[in-house]
Write a protein that binds this DNA or RNA. Structure first.
Lengths: 186, 186
DNA sequence: AGGTTCATGTAACCCGTTACATGATTTC
DNA sequence: GAAATCATGTAACGGGTTACATGAACCT
């Protein structure tokens, strides 16, 4: 079975919140900070078709008189299961090195579909992998300093700082969720 | 004429430094923080072929007896021109919103191929676009606060912080290059 | 002699990009 | 009645992923 694309998971996640049409989804990508994804029909409609063919979505055409016909999509139970399985995968080094975008996408839908334990699990694993990876970048910068041009060094410095910012964010978010859990227990 | 892919520009940039083989380039992507790019032969060899077909690279096979045959690539003058044109393009909002990776790639080769004026031009344009974009993200966060789930808000917060980190980095780097310029003038 | 690394390639597949097409409804 | 927007699609193309193939040189 073929893995869903990032766009596929983004669509699946958005449809967990409420049923929407392809056009609704395009508008979200066009007019909100979710717009790292393409809002082009050539990307979205085929992606929805694939998800439906794989049994993760169902759709129905609504032809209310005096309204434009719209095809509304909603996730199936199989789609919900696949989404949660993707979302709660173990965070590994390779995710941090090559797929930070995917990690953030997974996280951004956590509240809708996962419980507090999943969220803290995710954030602490992320923090752990970041804490392990960042020193190796710092070390590379230090040892290669002389052989790299200034702009190369600075570009790497930028990447390293970006990871450090992400680590600080993960720790802060973890704090928020832990506090929240304490609150709900009492 | 078809635009080069990011990988194509990365290869072109690395070959400005010195002639290398496909295998050399794969090793760079496999073993250094340049490894956001794929080190798979199925990506690199076709990319090199395309660049050669477009006249941006030339290659020659070296068969020194007692050594494995290697095909070394080097940029043509047309390749150097195309690279510099790409590198010194005006930084626009869309670059900041959708193509930060490309901006960092452009910057990372600046020292090799561009002069100090190009670098400061690039960095100040980047800082300007970031300074204009970040408040719109903050505003979105503020106005949509109630309608977004916590994890969605935090994900957006992460993105915003990442842009703020980049802005701070751009200002710092600009300071370094300005100081350097003063130094060389005297 | 046999396994590993060096080194270069190719082919099928997936999917995003770009551009085009179609028609209904709303707006001026 | 014309233009803009709503809404859904399709088709050609490019290029990255995965997997496979081939052979030479090096190491033990």
């Amino acid at each position: 079975m073929q893995e869903n694309s990032l766009l596929g998971y983004a669509l699946l996640g958005l449809l967990h919140h409420q049923p929407r049409s392809g056009y609704d989804l395009r508008k979200i990508f066009a007019h909100t900070p979710m717009g790292t994804f393409s809002d082009s029909p050539g990307a979205i409609y085929p992606a929805l078709q694939r998800l439906e063919k794989r049994g993760f979505l169902t759709s129905r055409v609504y032809e209310s008189s005096g309204l434009r016909r719209r095809r509304l999509f909603r996730p199936t139970s199989s789609g919900k299961r696949a989404f949660k399985a993707w979302q709660t995968r173990t965070v590994v080094k390779d995710d941090v090195v090559h797929r930070v975008d995917e990690l953030m996408l997974r996280f951004s839908f956590m509240d809708q579909t996962a419980d507090s334990a999943d969220v803290t699990q995710f954030l602490s694993a992320l923090a752990k992998e970041l804490a392990a990876y960042i020193p190796s970048l710092r070390k590379f910068l230090k040892t290669q300093r002389t052989s790299m041009p200034l702009s190369g060094r600075l570009a790497l410095e930028s990447g390293t700082r970006s990871y450090e910012t992400l680590l600080a964010w993960a720790k802060m978010s973890l704090g928020i969720y832990k506090k929240k859990k304490r609150g709900t227990r009492r």
